[in-house]
Design a binder for these strands. Sequence first.
DNA 1: CCATCTTTGTGCACGCGTTCACAAAGACAT
DNA 2: ATGTCTTTGTGAACGCGTGCACAAAGATGG
Lengths: 256, 256
Amino acid sequence: MATGRTHRPATRSRGIPEATVARLPLYLRALTALSERSVPTVSSEELAAAAGVNSAKLRKDFSYLGSYGTRGVGYDVEYLVYQISRELGLTQDWPVVIVGIGNLGAALANYGGFASRGFRVAALIDADPAMAGKPVAGLPVRHTDELEEIISENGVSIGVIATPAGAAQQVCDRLVAAGITSILNFAPTVLSVPDGVDVRKVDLSIELQILAFHEQRKAGEETAAVRRTGTAGRPAAAAREGRKGPDGDVPAVMPA
Amino acid sequence: MATGRTHRPATRSRGIPEATVARLPLYLRALTALSERSVPTVSSEELAAAAGVNSAKLRKDFSYLGSYGTRGVGYDVEYLVYQISRELGLTQDWPVVIVGIGNLGAALANYGGFASRGFRVAALIDADPAMAGKPVAGLPVRHTDELEEIISENGVSIGVIATPAGAAQQVCDRLVAAGITSILNFAPTVLSVPDGVDVRKVDLSIELQILAFHEQRKAGEETAAVRRTGTAGRPAAAAREGRKGPDGDVPAVMPA
DNA sequence: CCATCTTTGTGCACGCGTTCACAAAGACAT
DNA sequence: ATGTCTTTGTGAACGCGTGCACAAAGATGG
């Protein structure tokens, strides 16, 4: 799961818990798939399975929105799609700017998931003058100098930062000064923003490190099991094992 | 309370809360930056500020790892870097395969953050025969047919899925069958995996939708505030205001 | 050696989120 | 109408994570 949530420790936004808000897009996606298959109604059990959550949790989540279900039947798919879309603010158009058109920025610009739900890439912005005017995903890249103008003219309130870490805070400051109030940050840095500005962070490196932690734990337990039985488990695990210190890994530096 | 530095990794790691694990990479990054500036020690207050968290939380997080600080002084930067790295399993080498070399996959392959911390891109895999052999980020793209062989030979246990949503589950199944036990999924789908396999999800579309929810909320409150004071806060905010629907958005579909 | 000062490590309380379990509500058949 | 059956909506209990506040520990200076 992506990391997020920077400010606002306990923002019961409007009676809707933050955890529920984070799951609404998940439900919406599952419902949209059902809608495309012309499924008229769905039970909490079915929908929960499709969204990968517990059915009780799903029902409680929906209860924060209102009583949109019919007991004994389930939920009307189309109606629920609309209700969730409205709740998430997806019935309106959200222009978005992407700053930093490197590999990642270009990938984001080409990502179809943006346009599909109310989000429209208003502009691609990069600091490299050589990039200016070059078309990426059908849009000409604009230079950073025009940042404020672009945001103001298009009424953009959501910005995506895909720059190197070193440039992120500076870009962030300019975005905020220009009126941006929501930022999706892909740069591996902690952004500091004034109150009232939301930042969500997507950090590939952190996700991998969390996986590594659990992987190490699994490997360790497996190794212990192998030692007990005296037989190798998976070949791949055995191959990894040789690189790992026996246990008494020596610290690179000891404390004073 | 993992105070007494027992040399039982399994026991100790099981006691580390998931929320803490998710923050360790954050601390590690801040510490690495300090290390590069040759800062010898750091207080919980300073480090917490750099990592963007509460200092009490940071101290409690570290307390799960052991007593690595010195009262009245703070933490030894180098020592802490080592301890966290070891805890996260970053002192060993983690070969990773990336499946699906489209825009996003290529961006991930080129992402420097992977190599920097124990992660090594062992192979890039794509289903398109036309891609086979083509170099991306200095590595030749391999065809999906070789997937099992690549994983087995390189002892890969972590896989990254960057395919379209439709192919993700199938790729996932093959990865798991080949011995992968940790998956980072960028495809907008819920993956189902057997027990013992960890999946983390990064979903750009969901992050944007969560931002849109809060943005919508802010826009509503701001409009009310402006009406009360009769003066606009930030100029750009006023420009945005006109775009917003009055509120009475008509449902696309009404329930039966 | 003692006093003072800084900073850690943690006991405790509180609030959010999750899950269980079930009563209420409605559909449907007879 | 009445009973049965399905599924929702939610009260309540529990567990986890967070943050406060402070005692313990060690550094530092006289």
